[in-house]
Design a protein around this nucleic acid. Structure first.
Lengths: 123, 123, 123, 123
DNA sequence: GTGGTCTAGACCACT
DNA sequence: GTGGTCTAGACCACG
C-alpha cells in the first residue's frame, strides 16, 4: 500500500487516495476481498485526517470498487480491471483536452502545443 | 474586445477573462496605453459579476500587463509580447505535465497517453 | 423550507435533511432552478454543523436532485417527480419488509403483525 | 438451537442472536434452567466472533432472560412467556411506527402505505 | 457572499 | 479493534 500524498498539488488529498487505490486495484496489487487498511491506520500512515481517508473510502464504495462492513473493515469488491482502465483513460482524456483548449484560447499553435507535450513526456 | 465566456467549462470565469485579454495584448489587438473597458461595462457585456471582472483586472495588473489609474481607468502597459507568449507556454506546460503525471500515477503507459493526446489534438 | 431535525431518532441528521428536501422537491415546494439555502445558512437555521448540511447536499447532488455551482450556490435540478415518488416508496417497502421479517423471526403471527400495523396507522 | 445468521441483512448479528434465543425461550424449546451453549461453542457453530455472542448473552442477561454463573455457563431464567411476547410486540410496534412515520415524512399517503404493507405481508 | 477541503477530536454502534 | 456520525473552526477558491 504505497500511497503518496502531495499536498502542494492542487488535487484534493482524498482524490489522490482514491486514484491511487483504484490503480492498486487495477494493477492487481489489491485483489478481490483484500482488506484495505483501516481508516485510522491509513490516516496515521499518511499523516492526514481520518475523515479525509473516510471520504476517499466512501467514494470508492459509491463507485463500486470496495465494500465496507460495519465493525469489520473495507474490502476490495469484484471488479472488471479492463473497465477501470477505460474509465481512468477517460479522465486523462478530459484533462488533456482541457489543457489543449486553454492553450488554443491563448493563441498557441497546435505545433507548439505538441512540441511542449513531447518535451514533457520524454523529459 | 471579443471575449467569450463559457460557464460550462470547468475553468474559472476570471481566468478565462485574464487569458483572453493577455492573448488580445499579445496579438496586438490591444496596444500599449489602450483603455480597457471599465469593470462595470465589461461585466454587463459579459453578463458576469463586476467582482469577477475586477479580479481579472487585478490579476492582469499584478502581473504587469495593465496599469490602473484611479478615477480614470485601466490601460495596457508596455509589454514584451515575446515574453508573454513564453509565459503562456509555461502555463500550458504546467497543465500538460500535471495531466501526464496523473495518467502515469494511474499506470497508463506513455504510449497510450501520447495516443490520447494526438487523438484530441487532431480530432 | 421547513425542515425538522429529530436528534433522538436513530436516523442520521444528514439523512433526515436529504429525505425532507427530496420531499419538498417532489411536492413542488422546491422547483427547478430554485436556490437551496446556503450550507452555512441552513446549518445555523437547523443548529447543526455546516459539514452535516454539506454532506446532505453532496448526497442530493450525487443522486441528481440538485446542481451545485462553486461560489454561487446549490440549485434544484430538473426532476421527474413521479420517479422520485416511486423511489421513496421502494425505501418504505424495504423498511416495512425488514420490520415484518423481524416480527416473523420472533414468531409473531401475521395476524398480530397486521393488527399492530393498523393500530399504529389509525392511532 | 437452530439459529440462523444472515449477514446480508441490515440487522446486527448480535440482535439476530438475541431475537432468536428469545423466541426459542418463548416457544418452550429452551426451558427454565436449560444450559445455553458456551460463548465459544456457539461462536464456532455460527461462525461469528465470540465477542458478538458474548454481547448477545450480556443483553439477554441484562433483560432477565438468562442467568450467567461464572465458570459454569449461562442458564435460562424463569420467565413469563406471555410477558415476553408482549415485549417483542412492543419492539415490532416501534419498528413499524418508525417506518410509517418516515413514509409520512416523505408525503406518502396512508392508503399507499397500507397497500405496500399488505403487498409485502401476503407476497 | 458562496462552496470545497481539511483538521482534531468526540461519541456511538458493531465485531 | 472496526466503521458511522457529528462538531467547531480553519483556510482556500470562486463570484
Amino acid at each position: 500500500m504505497k500511497i503518496i500524498i502531495n499536498t502542494s498539488l492542487m488535487v484534493p488529498i482524498y482524490e489522490q487516495v482514491v486514484d491511487q487505490i483504484k490503480t492498486l486495484i487495477r494493477n492487481g496489487v489489491l485483489k478481490e476481498n483484500d482488506n484495505l487498511p483501516s481508516v485510522r491506520t491509513l490516516s496515521k500512515e499518511l499523516k492526514i485526517s481520518a475523515l479525509t481517508v473516510k471520504k476517499a473510502y466512501d467514494l470508492l464504495e459509491s463507485e463500486g470498487f470496495t465494500i465496507t462492513v460495519h465493525g469489520k473493515g473495507t474490502y476490495v469488491a469484484a471488479t472488471n480491471t479492463e473497465l477501470l482502465l477505460e474509465e481512468q483513460k477517460k479522465e486523462l482524456e478530459a484533462d488533456l483536452e482541457q489543457a489543449i483548449q486553454k492553450g488554443r484560447r491563448c493563441g498557441i499553435s497546435d505545433e507548439d502545443i505538441r512540441d511542449l507535450f513531447e518535451l514533457i513526456l520524454e523529459g
